[in-house]
Design a protein around this nucleic acid. Structure first.
Lengths: 331, 331
DNA sequence: CTCCCTCACTGTTACGATTCAGTTAGGCTC
DNA sequence: GAGCCTAACTGAATCGTAACAGTGAGGGAG
């Protein structure tokens, strides 16, 4: 049945169904403006089922000039629980639309060679794509969706309000009576692009609430170093009594450091994280944190991508993704 | 310069360099058995650089009958820190060989439609691919690498000795004086395929060391439920004094549960996890665990894949990946 | 009866790369 | 100087799909 090669092609299906290959293509693609009789359609679909025909992604991509891949460009940062979750959810969501998600670190290869080579159906970026690449992709008709830090710079962006996250951290601490706020920053310089807007939010909230500016300290993922930071906050005059951590990992490290120097949360130092890590409920004490609701974000991003592939028009102005406070015991 | 369409093709390069398109292809692929003069080679490469030519992955895939994608089939399980890390490391490693990693949940789509559609350069599987699919892929010349549970059933497998992991957990507990062992199993039924060999290792080690069979209890990711399990172990007669957790997440939940009922590790109940999660050092007390060295595994898997694509022959019998004990304080 | 229109298809080309099977031009041998 | 060989190329077929541009049959209008 199958031609000389092993593969079952649309031509094989056509032969089996007694129609032309063109007709097979029309049936399978529900081609608009083409009248196909019900009997023919049935014959084709039966032949497809019988032969187990599966269209070749490569041939389709060559013909259409675009593949069914979605390229996600990641900042060159170790993925934490939250980013991994986003990638996972997004992959599942896109899969429902027959799209495959490919992730690449921005750093490793020039971005242009990637998209020119893969002809992705869409590109998903969070940061650091050059203006030329943006222009090139636009010229090639590739929709670019950015999960944003700064919604202003990118047209088709889905903002995560990083500043809002920082704001909410401070508001929680202020609401529980803390007036002198600390900020636990991770050491990795690569995270700075995420760190800065969050910290800006913290600063802004402090200013608005009439609090002193936050005392920023590095808290690396190391209990001993974190202990030093905890001690420094605690023994400051006036003492820092509430700390916003960059994320839950940093918060875990800080809590471990505090334990070393005999401090406990929230009594000596209240701690609030970001991400709602899977392990956050098991921290000592259970970690109060900000959930950025990546499941919702993933759904929206997927819809935005699918929409911009189909319509070829920019969808409605993207809404900011909700962010919620998860109160446990650490703050 | 570029033909009517936007894309720069090999034909454009050929025109620019004043040679045939065939020659361009030979130069770019370093075609063996083809003599290309140095001057021609230079002309072609100059034209490539000048035009910014990037070969079309789709066209190449169509011609060669195989793409540059590596398909990783995942069991339908929420990805934890360790699996996410493996995926990340593997992606980076494969990227160095111009391969792109695509992950898919086994459950969602029939596997056959996936590989027939994508024509991947290789398939990476850990579990649950049907015999027909295996045969089909073999027939299509797609190398299948399995990161193994059971090295016996798959020919080109890279075994992670899950049983060895269980064994090492028990050995650690026995070495620190524990004689009555518990096993903290996750609730998700999907994890059973990983759970069973680990538990088998635990059972075997207990038997060999002359200990009673392990007391297996469900420990879901919920502190209250984990507390019940902890209490049950502690109040058994004779009491269970050391628990092997399925993984670090389960261990975190168990430690949280113990805290609720006033038990502490390792005094009342020693706890040992698996995975060496990023947060394991920050557990209370810091979590003793088994590191399955996924970075090493990722490197080996990548090499195995690249090797089997290139040689088309099965590489040397794969060695089992080292597994190591990380001693902290919980056991 | 002729003309035209619609329905339901089919023939053929193009997408961009790889590669088999030639085809020159020049040098060497006898 | 005829014959042969090799180096250094080029022409054309091919992979599987999509879709443009027909094509014949049947029916209705005039």
């Amino acid at each position: 049945m199958a031609s000389r090669s092993g593969r079952v092609t649309a031509t094989d299906v056509a032969r089996e169904a007694g129609v032309s290959q063109t007709t097979v293509s029309y049936v399978l693609n529900d081609a608009p403006h083409q009248k196909i009789s019900e009997s023919t359609r049935r014959k084709v679909l039966d032949a497809v089922a019988k032969l187990g025909y599966q269209p070749s992604a490569a041939a389709r991509a060559l013909r259409l000039g675009r593949s069914e891949l979605v390229l996600m460009l990641l900042p060159d940062v170790p993925v934490g629980d939250s980013l991994a979750t986003l990638v996972e959810l997004l992959g599942d969501e896109l899969e429902r639309h027959r799209l495959s998600l490919i992730t690449r670190r921005t750093q490793h290869a020039p971005v242009s060679s990637l998209w020119r080579e893969l002809m992705p159906a869409a590109v998903l970026t969070s940061l650091g794509v050059s203006a030329e690449d943006m222009a090139g992709m636009r010229a090639a008709g590739i929709p670019v969706v950015s999960v944003e830090i700064d919604a202003a710079t990118h047209p088709l962006g889905l903002p995560i309000h990083q500043t809002l996250i920082g704001r909410m951290q401070v508001e929680r601490l202020a609401a529980t009576g803390h007036t002198r706020i600390g900020y636990a920053a991770p050491r990795q310089p690569r995270l700075r692009d995420f760190l800065e807007p969050r910290l800006a939010g913290v600063r802004a909230a402090c200013a608005e609430l009439g609090l002193e500016a936050p005392a920023v300290l590095d808290v690396p993922l190391d209990a001993a170093a974190a202990a030093a930071a905890a001690d420094q906050w605690h023994s400051a005059v006036p003492a820092v009594t509430g700390v916003c951590a960059y994320n839950d990992e940093t918060a875990f490290a800080l809590l471990a450091g505090m334990r070393r120097v005999g401090l406990s949360a929230p009594g000596d130092l209240a701690v609030i994280g970001v991400d709602n890590d899977k392990l956050a409920p098991f921290a000592v004490p259970p970690l109060t944190t900000i959930d950025n609701n990546l499941d919702i974000l993933a759904g929206r991003v997927a819809r935005l991508i699918v929409g911009s592939i189909a319509d070829d028009t920019v969808s409605a102005a993207p809404q900011s993704v909700p962010v919620s406070l998860v109160v446990r015991e650490s703050a």
